[in-house]
Write a protein that binds this DNA or RNA. Structure first.
Lengths: 224, 224, 224, 224
DNA sequence: CATGAATGAGACTTCATTCAT
DNA sequence: TATGAATGAAGTCTCATTCAT
């Protein structure tokens, strides 16, 4: 079971005189691309090194094992993801529906529609083999994201805009379609498949917001 | 030609069992558990055999390769999943909201809450290394499921129950939270994590249906 | 490296009621065909059994191992090969050239042009892994054949027909082209090759006899 | 992902050698010896590596598979063999009998009496399991050799030295005794056998040339 | 710092042989 | 006798990791 999907070639135009400060990030970038592409087990250390333009030995100068490299990739790509969103919620003034729309669009543009989004697939696939990452991911991603969206919903409820709903579960429904779409984009999305189901990401985002915000909102008072 | 293998010990510790009919299912069960646990690549053929109580060689008596074993697992667990849903839709008489509720509950009880649900994680994670399976899974699972839910939504629209919405995208939002929950259950869900976000699957299902069905429904006519 | 050349299917028309006395020979025939085809190592015990129309276990009822089976095949096919030729030499009355012609044609028709001829290839290929067979083959095939042809040549020399020549070496030259042709027939001869060298076996035999008998003969006395 | 391999012992028993240039030839030599000894299928890759003083993995650094290793052995040992003969024929000035003598002696000294001579046995023995090699060997060895000797014979005929004979078949008789002797030397020749037929290779060569050149030559005109 | 040749544990798979029925 | 399911040693090949230069 070899990986068959071609990986984009490393940028050969990069200047030869690399500074050693840049190395770790170059290695992380190369590793991210390959882990997303082929998964952890199917990615060879040598490929990562090649893609980063260094030799196999050099990779081990910076990361003591493939496992540690993987963890570094995850941490570096997911570490600050949520913090930015939290700030936004604190100072937003408009309606909660607008806040959620804003939040989701930002998230999509700044992360979901970015190569880094593929990291989620890898994490989902491999956490069970990396128990340390599970705690990290929970602390750094899931809990903050849950709090972020839970807070939004609570805000909506408190302002009389939304019906009361269980916060965790509603937050789940809020994010899941987008995260799931990412997973699909980075797995099936990259395979050559005949007669596949095609969805338009932007339309998914809009439709989802449309559905779920409507579902959240309290019924408008009957028009008199 | 080679030095002959040393004579086998006269009394193998476990008596040979002869259950040709039961073997394939036992192997499939063992394989499902391990593939879900550790992923396809990280599962060793010998582990599968051991878990099924047979030797490595016996596994290959029934499945010619690890890949074929995996495909057999997928087929055996997902093969008839959708077909039943399609039937249900064909003969259902009530409102479309009720139909969707029924469909989702059935799906949850018959698949989502079952060990087989973990297959999704494995497929998402490793399908890129497994191009043949991508086509198979698209044909057998994704396309029929999309059609199934798309048809439900169309039924609702045609009967005046639902607002018109893009079918694929709405179907996506309909299924994604449940599938995503499955992915989480079978990845993070199995790790020991402190302070995790806990969601109640049943409550997720209910909340999701509550939100999304409300979002789908046409606004009730203003009271009088 | 699997064998690719198709093996002729076993004769399925054979009556189902085999007598156990026939078994050993049937197994030897099947084994001969397969060993010639694919060599010893590449022939699976199960194939031999299938071709003989019995199960794998039954093969081991008659021959305790694949090695023993192989030795039995060799012995059964080469055991009496030479004896017949020796008889012929004793009572022949004509010229030694005619005797050699007769001998070679007989050998060709009765052995060389027969499926059993393939056994030579297998022996050449495998003796080094079967030291016991080396002695057997020397005793039963090489030494008698050498004596047979050496005797012929000596007869020719003694009768003034042939020039004196080293007997072993001349006997070698006498047989080698035919044996070598057999080896080629059963190795390259069975492969699909483009632009191969084709030789006509009968023409090889005639040309060889023509050359070598002429070479053996004393120069005719200058015509006075 | 798996339990990490136990830490390698700090001082490997043999110091690492770094001789990248010498390795391929060392591996080819080791492989030649073992293939000739035990055949292709019965030779384990690890044995080849050990004999060359490297580890299993190193072998695969230089040759991607056992098959390719074998082909490299054949190429390295037979690749230029024929080409030299062809040259010789082109510029030879003496009688064709002398040319053939010269050719055969050269062949014997440069190949037949060399470890590489054993390759023929391996090819004959296993070519049926190795279809790609069959074509290669036909193209690179058999066809050129046939042409080489056929051309010699034609030269002799055209110059009035030899009788007309079918070219392929005469070429066969010309080479076969020597090739067959090689086969025997590398199979039976290496076994401990009592009372074997011993032939002196040089004497075989001389006797064969004596016989066959005499057979080829036109009868001298009767002395008047 | 950087290299890349070398290592060797371990994965998948095959198949000769056994043995309960 | 005959069967064929089961076994497990052994083979090819991969790749994470090391280390002399």
């Amino acid at each position: 079971m070899k990986a068959l999907a071609p990986v984009a070639p490393p940028q050969p135009s990069a200047p030869r005189q690399r500074r050693k400060e840049a190395r770790p990030q170059e290695l992380l970038d190369a590793a991210l691309a390959l882990f997303v592409d082929k998964g952890f087990a199917a990615t060879r250390a040598e490929e990562v090194a090649q893609r980063a333009g260094v030799s196999k030995g050099t990779l081990y100068l910076y990361y003591p094992s493939k496992e540690e490299l993987f963890k570094a990739v995850v941490r570096s790509n997911l570490g600050t993801l949520i913090a930015e969103g939290i700030e936004l919620v604190g100072c937003f003034e408009g309606s909660t529906s607008e806040l959620l729309r804003e939040l989701m669009h930002t998230w999509w543009n700044r992360f979901g529609n970015t190569p880094a989004a593929g990291i989620h697939k890898v994490v989902i696939a491999e956490v069970r083999n990396f128990p340390e990452l599970a705690q990290f991911y929970s602390d750094e991603v899931i809990v903050p994201a849950d709090r972020l969206f839970g807070n939004c919903i609570r805000r909506g409820v408190e302002r009389g805009e939304f019906r009361p709903l269980p916060l965790h579960e509603a937050a789940h429904t809020l994010m899941a379609p987008l995260l799931f779409m990412l997973l699909c984009r980075h797995s099936f999305g990259c395979c050559a498949i005949e007669g596949r189901v095609e969805v338009d990401p932007t339309l998914v985002l809009e439709t989802h917001l449309d559905l779920v915000l409507r579902g959240l909102e309290v019924r408008p008072p009957p028009a008199m």
